[in-house]
């Protein structure tokens, strides 16, 4: 699929009000993308924790444990994993896997999320550069406006 065409805007041709609007829009986009990164990192941490938990299950068959029935009720029991785990692969589907397979699944997910994070980070960097350009143009316009004001006031004084 081809990349969407980036709309080129000549910042110099925009008024201060328009620049302010563009700036707010870019800031909102940066905020949105930053939130996306946070969500992706949260998902990544979830898979890393799952991988570690599966690793902790190796060679524990028959050991005593407290089985969580809810977050506040536990029963004494024994681990009976047979080196197998049930993994939620999304949309209500669960697959029984060996611990190694489960860890590989988690690794693939983490890798996929990391790639997405990198893409979003690149987009954020681009947006930040755009924002800097907008701020610079706005500042130059403001200073130009101030100069014009000063010149006008000088002319008025001279005329008097």
């Amino acid at each position: 699929m081809s990349e969407p065409q980036q709309q080129q805007v000549n910042l110099g041709s925009l008024s201060l009000e328009q620049l302010q609007m563009v700036r707010e829009q870019v800031e909102a986009e940066i905020q949105q993308l930053s939130e996306s990164i946070q969500q992706l990192k949260h998902a990544s941490n979830k898979y890393i924790e799952a991988k570690e938990a599966m690793g902790g299950l190796k060679g524990t068959d028959g050991k005593d444990m407290l089985v969580p029935l809810t977050s506040s009720i536990y029963l004494p029991g024994k681990i009976n994993s047979n080196e197998k785990v049930l993994v939620d692969i999304g949309t209500g589907y669960y697959v029984e896997m060996g611990i190694e397979q489960g860890q590989n699944f988690s690794n693939r997910k983490v890798q996929l999320i990391t790639e997405q994070v990198n893409k979003v980070q690149t987009a954020i960097n681009m947006k930040r550069q755009n924002l800097e350009s907008i701020v610079q143009v706005a500042q130059s316009k403001i200073s130009l406006y101030k100069q014009q004001q000063a010149q006008q006031s000088q002319q008025q004084v001279q005329q008097k």
């Binding site: 799952a50 599966m54 444990m65 009720i73 029963l75 029991g77 994993s81 197998k84 049930l86 939620d88």
Partner: peptide
């Protein structure tokens, strides 16, 4: 076991229960 990962355990004739 963890979010989205489930494991199996055997409970033998429970006589007590633990409350958090």
């Amino acid at each position: 076991l963890s979010e989205g990962v489930y494991s199996s355990a055997q409970v033998n004739e429970p006589k007590s229960i633990y409350l958090w």
